[in-house]
Computed example of a mutant assay.
Amino acid sequence: MNGILGNALATHPTLVADGAMATELEKRGVDTANALWSATALLDRPGAIRDVHRSYFEAGSDIATTDTYQANVPAFERLGLSTKESERLIGIAVTEAIAAREEYRTAHAGEPDSDRPLIVAGSVGPYGAFLADGSEYTGDYALADAEYRDFHRPRMRALADAGVDVFAFETMPNLGEVRALAGLLADEFPDHEAWVSFSLRDAGHLCDGTAIERAVAKLEENPRIAAIGVNCVPPELVSPAIERLRAATTKPIIVYPNNGDVYHPDTKTWTPNPDGADLARLAPEWVAAGASIIGGCCRTTPDNIRALATAVRRGRP
């Protein structure tokens, strides 16, 4: 393995990713009930974003994922902002994550785990997130390869220029979009790498119905794809998905599921699940199955990540 993720995994065999951004911003008074979702904070509450990142580093996360899942140039332009201002806001998301990392490093210099690799991953959400109609959970949309590239290119350029370490192509439900992103990465961002994490309809298929094995085959030979996995899925899908992934790829596997609550895309609301899975209890099982990077997605918190990190690093729940 090489590259930033590979080098980090060479010295720290299991990396801990962060958890939900929107959930924590809401606790800090940010209203995310709109088409921009958590990216709303980029307009007037960037300090809250830094605070969330810092809380995850303090909890034991090795990776900060930027607040850009739903932050793309067309979304900001729809609000009347210019392309230049839109790109500036995307850059602010990176700046806040990097600032949180430096604050954490300064505060904990010389401590036993101060050699942890702290990676800033630039979130690149799917075109379905821009549609804001829940289609990142169906994959029920289709653009031409060039159209996908034109949509994602400005955000990726802004993220790269602002200094992200890797891209996170996350919650990807649609094989055509994944292929376009992988091609864009290889053709126009040769100095960067990315992980790809799929959203799933079941343990063996992307939301658009593509078998995991087929999706992985389109990525396996791309040297800029540094890890492959799943995110924004129920915890019970993770172990069987890892089994399918492990049989199809030699790349590191990344998993970061939701907390077990049930999302309703039509109303953009959640139903709490009192029997939701304990990520910390399941994490050692996922490591044993072959996952190298583990974190949380929607509704997970710094407390969840703290418990997960303890379980992963001690090898027990």
Results as ranks from 00 to 15, higher is better:
M1C: 11
G3R: 04
I4S: 01
A8R: 08
A8H: 12
L9M: 04
A10L: 12
T14E: 08
G19I: 14
E24Y: 05
A35P: 15
T40C: 09
T40L: 12
I49Q: 01
R50T: 08
S55F: 09
S55W: 10
E58Q: 09
S61D: 07
T66Y: 03
Q70R: 12
A71Y: 00
A75D: 12
F76E: 00
L81S: 08
E87F: 06
I92C: 07
E103R: 10
R105V: 15
P112R: 01
I119T: 03
G125Y: 10
Y127F: 14
Y127L: 11
Y127V: 11
A129W: 04
A132L: 01
S135I: 12
G139K: 07
A144D: 14
D150N: 11
D165Q: 07
A168Y: 00
E177K: 03
P190V: 01
V196S: 08
V196D: 14
F198H: 10
A203E: 13
A203T: 13
G209W: 04
R214P: 14
A226Y: 13
R244M: 05
L245A: 06
T249N: 01
D261C: 02
V262L: 12
W270R: 03
P272C: 07
P274F: 13
W286C: 00
A288N: 11
G290P: 12
C298H: 08
R306E: 04
A307Y: 10
V312D: 00
V312L: 03
R316K: 10
